[in-house]
Design a protein around this nucleic acid. Structure first.
Lengths: 209, 209, 209, 209
DNA sequence: AATGAATGAGCTTTCATTCAT
DNA sequence: GATGAATGAAAGCTCATTCAT
């Protein structure tokens, strides 16, 4: 009667359920938007029945909020760590920040969440505020720190960092949105690597001291 | 109070109806998204009854498509004319293109339509395709022409215009999206003029030959 | 183009709808209780569809409250008028009050509402309070006035009118409840006339000065 | 901690379970009615899990019927014994019957069951029939025997005992219903002792030979 | 042309019931 | 015996759409 024998594949499911449901919900919310997503489809994609959803989430709105929160928070910490401990040139930091961001976004759901938040912020003001405060503000602050580091070290010319950060972030966010919305429509799809390289090139040249 | 005297007023209204409905629908679709917008609210905002809507539009989807198409088409022609007939420096052209674009977007509904298309492209693939082909492709082409003009005249260094155009467009589109989604959340709202000046500055410095 | 011609059978329905729905709802709520009554059945019994109900009532609870209020308020005024303007002996007044009450109850829905309120008061405290204040208190007050009139005129012996009123009302209410609940079970059903005669007889003998 | 020592405690619980469940169910059914009572709440109040309920009762309806049957049957025997062996005056018998009834009802669940049966008889015809045959008929018969004893001994005037019994029972039942439904609403709650004294007084005066 | 009462498919949510453990 | 995760039928409610007027 070992511990292992007592913890069979069924018990494990209970712990996984919320994550499976969140993953399924993320996909469908991103694909169709909040209102157009049917909870029955979410449940089906997670391999459970409609009712099971309500064992883990109070209602549709609460599921939606959980999807956003659960997928956002773990992502920022690692990016922040990199900025603050970086040793190389600021141009390299800028490069790593942008490419690392995209890699993380593509790997996680950040990609689709951005689209989701643009689409639904009007319907969920508190969630929009949360997203703004916890994600946008913190991301922006990272870029500002990077720019100020570059200026302090004489690598970048003097610019208004708080305005410039928005300009630099925009193409990265836009890439995520394109990827989620018009990507399938484009006959000549954007090559993310080339796009980001071009952005980095523009920034480094445009910021050069 | 002859019959003849009554006609004109009525005629005018009859012709205005579709536009009033489209304007009301644009506002609500942008605010809430396609699925969360109730036709009753659209009708109410246009000052007519629910049934009247169906005299002018086949159904909700058709209204949605009309909203997008009707608001898009008139906007591009004037921008295109400017690019092709421009006499000054390419840096000035870039500046005028970007500021003119934002002015037009803010004045028209382009602003909200962008958000709408990002949000609903997954649910309306044909519409996304239309938007891509008629709006995105044509906008992009303008920027490409501007970049190629600058390179041909030796004002800009050599870059991959087809990639760079996306990078340059992104911050402008992003400004429109922010304006529509997180604008109300931001304690320190973005100043569009400063933001665009910063973008133009980055581009001109970054493209300088 | 007379007024009569302009008010066709369809327009009339709109005004009748709420009453038809209230009548249907009364029947079913009394028959099955609040929770066990399906709105679809209410609508069907009123000859309309589910959705129509929501044109006239906000939700199930609001329909329930309307049923109670709409059926109760008109009934008390006439009874009160009788008590206050009565000219004959107090024994006759007692007789008329009791028989008139039952006749009114049987004719209107008061009959079933009593059962409904006993059953659902726990689930609708505000409604129970309303019923208590507007129906029970006012009914009781009528009986008290009748008893005090009899004592003042020396027709009834001295009793505690406020306690006695409850004892006298009880058998009448109980008759209504029996009628609605165990009536169908009883092999020897109660004859309301004989029952009320017996009650009146007991009261008049028991109160005799 | 031998096996034998553990058994008794367990045995006891096992035997108590059904009664604990019935008690919990009685409370909730009376409070909320059949349909509005959730089995999960019943189980929780009895301190067991939802599934356990189904070890002792086939389903919700069967639990409901058991609640009614289990609480009814033990109550009548003692009352019947008293009537048949009584030695004093019939007025005293009437007094003891009525006050004894109320004491028993208040002590047991009879109180709430009455309300429950009024409310749900329409939804459970067989149960209503059972209640009618086993409870109402037998209670009524007791009162009839008491009345006939009084008339036979010349203590009561001649009345139709089968009608009068209903009139006499009504206020007692009504007291139970009030206690369960409008009691909490009443600013001036009924004092059961004064109420019953008043009823007894009315009956004895009204039946006096 | 315009209305708005009516409809009913479709969705969210609840909860009695089952069953693997 | 006991559990509680899972189920899915059923009910409340919404709203795009229709159509008699």
């Amino acid at each position: 009667m070992s511990e292992a024998a007592k913890e069979p594949r069924w018990e494990r499911r209970k712990q996984d359920r919320p994550q499976e449901l969140l993953a399924a919900a993320l996909q469908l919310f991103v694909e169709r938007g909040f209102a157009a997503t049917r909870l029955e489809d979410v449940a089906a994609r997670a391999g459970v029945s409609k009712g099971t959803l309500y064992l883990y989430f109070e209602n549709k709105e609460s599921l939606f909020k959980s999807v956003v929160r659960a997928n956002m928070l773990p992502l920022l910490a690692e990016a922040e760590a990199m900025v603050d401990g970086y040793a190389g040139s600021s141009a390299d930091l800028l490069r790593e920040l942008i490419t690392g961001w995209w890699d993380t976004a593509a790997r996680s759901g950040l990609n689709g969440i951005s689209k989701l938040m643009v689409a639904e912020s009007g319907n969920f003001p508190e969630l929009a505020r949360f997203y703004h405060d916890e994600v946008i503000v913190r991301s922006d602050a990272m870029i500002v720190r990077m720019l100020e580091r570059g200026m302090a070290r004489g690598e970048f010319r003097t610019v208004d960092a708080h305005t410039m950060k928005k300009v630099i972030v925009a193409p990265v966010v836009m890439l995520m949105l394109w990827d989620q919305s018009f990507g399938p429509c484009s006959i000549v799809p954007i090559d993310p690597q080339a796009y980001l390289a071009c952005l980095i090139d523009l920034c480094i040249n445009g910021l050069k001291a």
